[in-house]
Simulated scan of single mutants.
Amino acid sequence: MTVPTTAPVDAVLFDLDDTLCRYRRSPATVLERAFERAGVDPLFEPSAYYDRYDDYLEDSSSVADLRERCFGDLAVEAGFERDAGIAVAEAFAAERDQRAVDPLSGVPDVLETLGEEYRLGLVTDGDPGMQREKLAAVGLTNAFDTTVFAGYDTAPKPDPEPFGRALAALETDPERAVYVGNSLSSDVAGARATGIRSVWVPPGPDFPAEPTPCPDYTLESLADLEQPPWLES
């Protein structure tokens, strides 16, 4: 979809994980501890879980249910009993503290500055209870005019549905909104499919010179949003 870039912006939507906040412990560290806690050898790599996460999102009743389904399947595929994968999922939940997150650099100031000029929305994949805990931990509970929990309220990203629901709540049109996120496949692709301009904040310094799909704007850090790039277009 071709995204118009000339209309003035009146709404800014955000992703949450690794865009506004980040866990203090990496998924690899938590999974390693979960294997130890469950008393089993490593059954799969952390990347296997995150590669398959979206496959279970829409049909799971909670993140605990999602992990049990996913870890159970991964265990079976690796030649282990399903119960071993479920035990690791339970251990992972015990090790993962949703409050053990920190805001990324510049987040509170950026949201405060943008909130004076634009309506703000959050579109995040994830269990509502889990995501609310993160928002509370980083002081962002009341930062947004609307929040959509994709995969629970709607289809998961990059489906246009969660973005469209946020736009409807903010009473704005796609061409008058931008979406800020760290994932090309989820955030940028979903924004483009909806007709929203995308702002990509790469998760690290080693990012492709020609990202696919191509975002409308690429920033080195979220702090750069204090001078919105769409005003320079």
Rank of each mutant, 00 (worst) to 15 (best):
V88R: 05
F149C: 06
D83Q: 09
V148P: 10
P174Q: 00
R176L: 03
K157T: 09
P162R: 12
G164M: 06
R69A: 04
G190P: 02
Y152Q: 12
A189R: 13
S185E: 13
G115A: 10
R192P: 05
E81T: 10
S105W: 14
T147D: 08
R165P: 11
L104C: 11
V123M: 02
E112C: 06
A143N: 05
G79E: 03
F80G: 14
A150N: 10
S61K: 00
A166N: 11
D102W: 01
R69P: 05
A193R: 07
V178W: 01
L120C: 06
A155Y: 07
F144T: 00
P108T: 08
I196L: 06
V199S: 01
F71H: 04
T147M: 13
L66R: 09
V110K: 09
V201A: 00
P128D: 11
V188G: 10
L122Y: 03
A136V: 14
P158V: 11
S61P: 00
D59E: 14
R165W: 07
E171L: 05
V63W: 14
P160K: 07
R165C: 10
A84W: 00
A136C: 08
G72E: 02
L167M: 05
P128V: 11
R119S: 15
L167F: 01
D127W: 14
P202T: 00
R67K: 08
E161F: 11
V188E: 00
S198P: 03
V110G: 06
Y118N: 08
R165E: 13
V101P: 04
A100P: 06
R99H: 14
D65E: 07
G139R: 13
D187R: 10
A91F: 03
T113S: 14
R99E: 15
K157R: 12
A93E: 13
A91C: 04
N142T: 12
E112F: 08
V101R: 04
P160R: 06
A64Y: 11
P108D: 07
L66G: 03
Y152N: 09
A100N: 04
G106E: 11
P108V: 10
A193G: 06
P103K: 03
L170N: 12
L111P: 05
A89P: 08
G190I: 04
S183F: 02
E68F: 02
G151H: 07
R119Y: 09
F163W: 02
V178D: 00
G164I: 01
K157P: 13
G129S: 15
D159L: 05
G181H: 03
R192Q: 10
N142Y: 13
F92V: 05
R176Q: 15
E81A: 15
Q98K: 05
A166K: 01
D65I: 10
F144E: 00
L170W: 04
T147I: 15
I196Y: 01
P158Q: 07
E117G: 10
E133T: 11
A155D: 12
E77R: 03
V107Y: 03
S61W: 12
S185C: 09
R69N: 04
V76L: 04
E117D: 14
F149Y: 15
T124S: 15
L74V: 07
F149V: 08
D173L: 01
A166E: 04
A137C: 12
N142M: 14
I86A: 02
E116H: 11
G195D: 00
D102I: 14
G164C: 10
